[in-house]
Amino acid sequence: MTAGAGPDLAAASGDAGMRGWSPQRVWSVAGAVVLVALVWGFYAWDGAQTTAVLGGTVRAATLLVLGAMCGMIGERSGIVNIGIEGQFLMSAFTAFTVASMSGSLFLGVVAGVSTGLAMGWMLAAMSVGLRTDQIIAGTVLNIAALGLTSFFYDRGRSLGQPKYQSIELGPLADLPVVGTALFNRPPLTYLALVLVVVLHVLLLRSVWGMRTTAIGEHPGAAATVGIDVIRLRYWNVTLAGGLAGLGGAYLALESVGTFTRAMSGGRGFLALAVMIFGRRTPLGAYAAALFFGFTTALQGQFQLNDTFDIPAQFVGMLPFVVTIIVVAAAGLFGRMRDPAALGQPYEVR
């Protein structure tokens, strides 16, 4: 099974449509059905709590899917981006600082996205331009972001205004179960959802998406038909950074409303697991992000109520343990295939 654009041009997911239902697809559909049934059951049992958990799920998923989309554009182009964590953190910092100083959330978002672009360009410069090992290059971003944001962190600064507030999408918000969770959200969440759909179409059907797949699978072949591999990789990794930058802005200005040291808390890494689980497609990643977001939301809910007496630390482990299981299971059962040129620097002869 290929995890990229399949040969079938109309393939909705990354799978080659004509090969029928793969075990993975059967499992994911079965999982989705079970999940929906469970959610419905819980909703009937305790509407308020279920709504809270679903809201938390979407909130956590938004950050994860933005990071995952950043990661997948890079990986489809052949570049591993392990620096998403650093991109989140750095852009959250600049978004917060600019919003606080200017009094404009929008300028904050612009600053966050710009920072993400700049960090993406740095990753591209290191891994594409200087052909540094990609994992080391990403690690450099993470350490640099932690160091710089700690150094410039101003404990006394506050946002000085409310964070982004929810916007009700008319009657849609009144739908049972999903109404509040999906259609009564702040603006960046909607933006992220739009980006998921747009990017999905672009990656699987556009000329850009096809060329991106080509430079990730066989850069040499792409070069022989006149595609500038280095240039496209630079562009892709840089632009993908903008998505992570949006994630950072979302984190600081919409999800939390402030900046704290190391506030990304490992979610840049979780985004990679989300990307892998979502088979490097935006819609797949969003499904995976909802699943991971669900574990995070559960964690929050467990801590708030005392129905279950589980120590906070064990609940806190949940998303990370799930990630390990997912990554291991993907290897054991998934036969997931990476883009063939993933991780290999491309050298123009």
Binding site: M317, F320, A328, A329
Partner: peptide, 25 residues
Amino acid sequence: LKATSGAHEVIVTIMLNFVAGNLTD
């Protein structure tokens, strides 16, 4: 995990850092 399932050690060790932090806490 790397040897048996191919799970990338970078992801797994990062996740284990968070798990260890919680566990030792």
